[in-house]
Design a protein around this nucleic acid. Structure first.
Length: 521
RNA sequence: GGCCCCGUCGUCUAGAGGCCUAGGACACGGCCCUUUCAAGGCCGCGACACGGGUUCGAAUCCCGUCGGGGUCACCA
């Protein structure tokens, strides 16, 4: 049984690079009919773990990356929180000590630093002298009575080579002398990542450790620990990290202000920011930006689009397949086809996937996705009335592929506002209504035509306007833009006849009247 | 700096010695369509980091150079 895992720290947000790694783990497990485990790396003992964890779990739920064991889904390998396993870890440290694979060390940070600097000065690689290693209980007592604090270090092999096979990088070999005597337990008894990690992977029956490339350098020491404890080794796959937009540096949530200088990134950010603002969300660029998964959920992206983009970030099937359903991804995913080189995060490409997925979404589900934005804006009741829903459906249908993310519905607010509340785009008003001398007169005449027509369906309206243009002997552009500004307040939008049909006769006429009044005629 | 990893269009990638005049996608540019804005259609721009080998033949194999990155914690 294949078992993979992802081990997030409860930081309060889900990073897009982390999700990519988690997703690969998830896909690999699902592909093999295995299980995916979520384990919480909370050894730092922060205060509000539950609170900081929620956005992360929520991100996984939103994306549909379900876990078989972990928070909320207790399994046979509980607990899934590292903070709850301290005695277990300490027992492992004791075993390593017993087997002579670890030792108590009493060097002070200053002494260590001095050794390190001396090595650097002599241009030789640093390796701790083990000068303050306590070999017996008597040594320990002596050093402790001298006021020293002891940590436990790994007693790494100082000859030979650690060899392992990585599913992505191939055969790996690292000389043991390149490994330091890493600390595995602090003076206060708490334990460090490398140790906890190995024990958890063993306890949870993890068969495949799929993680980002920056952990490659942790692998040898983890193998040392695992072997020392007599654990079977998992298989390893180090996937390349996700790089920054436009560079090969590792993507970091701390460099958002720098990414904002990237035009594409900025554009996606601004678009999301505008939507957040329109629904009254207070956001900060640190936690609400295209590096954080939450951003996409709130702005109204589709999870399928995000996943499709992410799966292609470092993996591909062949030379042309781009669109995959989740089932297809599961069926086709393999570590062998994961790339070695880091891939830069490109939100424009993600956007392109979003566009395609949104285009393919039928009217009903699209309407459902879009609805909450108008409700948050206070324009539609909760639950929406049948009449409101009907209009919304019409707007969604008319706007069609102009709605790229659910929040884009906010571009069509004017269909949900009272007639006298529709704001005018002043420059459009000027250009289409005030400036052309004939505009007001034509608008008034066309209003009269509308008032007498009986069918307000889009095709009929189009015929009506065409006839109007002919009888008046004008260009279509002389009237159509004026009408658009009159009824929507804006220069842009979907088809004018659809707009008129959706508003209906009464509202259309009312809005034109209001415009005529504003024109002072 | 030590150790390690990586190197095909701006970006994501296909490519396992001849199928490569290097394919696809995003982005970009142009044209068409068009009542605006989108969408769509067509066309275009654009890469094997460099240098040596090996071979009849190299983007693919070998060596070197250069470039980029990761990591060197009592963080994870």
């Amino acid at each position: 049984m294949v078992r993979t895992r992802f081990a997030p720290s409860p930081t309060g947000y889900l990073h897009i690079g982390g999700v990519r790694t988690a997703f690969f783990n998830w896909l690999f497990a699902r592909h093999h009919g295995g299980q995916f485990i979520l384990r919480i790396d909370d050894t730092d003992q922060q205060r509000n773990i539950a609170e900081a964890l929620e956005p992360i779990l929520n991100g996984f739920r939103w994306l549909g990356l379900n876990w078989d064991e972990g928070p909320g889904i207790e399994g046979p390998h509980a607990p899934y929180y590292q903070s709850q396993k301290l005695p277990r870890y300490q027992e492992a440290v004791r075993q390593l000590l017993e087997r002579g694979l670890a030792y108590h060390d009493y060097a002070t940070p200053e002494e260590l630093k001095a050794e390190r600097e001396a090595a650097e000065k002599e241009k030789r690689p640093f390796l701790y002298s083990r000068k303050w290693m306590a070999e017996s209980a008597a040594d320990r007592a002596r050093l402790e009575s001298a006021g020293r604090q002891g940590v436990v270090r790994l007693k790494m092999a100082r000859e030979g080579t650690c060899r392992f096979v990585d599913h992505i990088r191939g055969e790996m070999a690292v000389a043991w002398t390149h490994e330091q005597d890493h600390v595995i337990q602090r003076a206060d008894g708490t334990v460090l990542y490398n140790l906890a990690n190995v024990i958890d992977d063993y306890d949870m029956g993890i068969t495949h450790v799929i993680r980002a490339e920056e952990h490659l350098s942790n692998t040898a020491r983890q193998i040392f620990i695992a072997q020392g404890l007599g654990y079977p080794l998992p298989e390893y796959a180090h996937v390349p990290f996700v790089a920054e937009p436009g560079s090969k540096n590792k993507l970091s949530k701390r460099k958002i202000s720098q990414y904002l200088k990237n035009a594409d990134f900025k554009k996606i950010y601004d678009h999301g920011q505008a939507i957040a603002q329109a629904i009254g969300l207070t956001t900060s660029a640190d936690t609400f930006n295209p590096v954080i998964v939450d951003f996409y959920e709130r702005v109204g992206y589709l999870p399928e689009a995000i996943l499709n983009y992410l799966v292609l970030l470092g993996w591909s099937l062949d030379d042309r397949s781009e669109m995959f359903t989740l089932d297809e991804m599961i069926a086709n995913f393999s570590l062998e086809r994961v790339n070695k080189a880091p891939a830069s995060f490109d939100c424009k490409k993600l956007w392109a996937f979003q566009e395609r997925y949104m285009q393919a979404l039928p009217v009903e589900p699209k309407t459902a996705r879009v609805l909450p934005y108008l409700q948050q804006r206070g324009l539609l009741a909760q639950p929406a009335t049948a009449h409101q829903l009907a209009r919304l459906r019409q707007v969604v249908q008319a706007a069609n592929e102009r709605i790229k993310v659910a929040g884009d519905i906010l571009d069509y607010l004017d269909f949900f506002l009272a007639d006298d509340q529709v704001p005018y785009d002043e420059s459009a008003f000027e250009k289409r209504l005030r400036k052309p001398p004939e505009a007001a007169g034509l608008l008034r005449k066309f209003r009269a035509c509308l008032a007498t027509t009986e069918s307000f369906a889009a095709p009929a309206l189009e015929g009506l306007l065409n006839q109007f243009v002919q009888t008046e002997g004008i260009q279509i552009g002389q009237i159509i833009h004026a009408v658009r500004v009159a009824i929507t307040g804006k220069a842009v939008g979907f088809g004018l006849f659809d707009a008129l049909a959706i508003l209906g006769k009464e509202q259309s006429l009312a809005r034109i009247d209001r415009t005529l009044q504003r024109l002072g005629s």
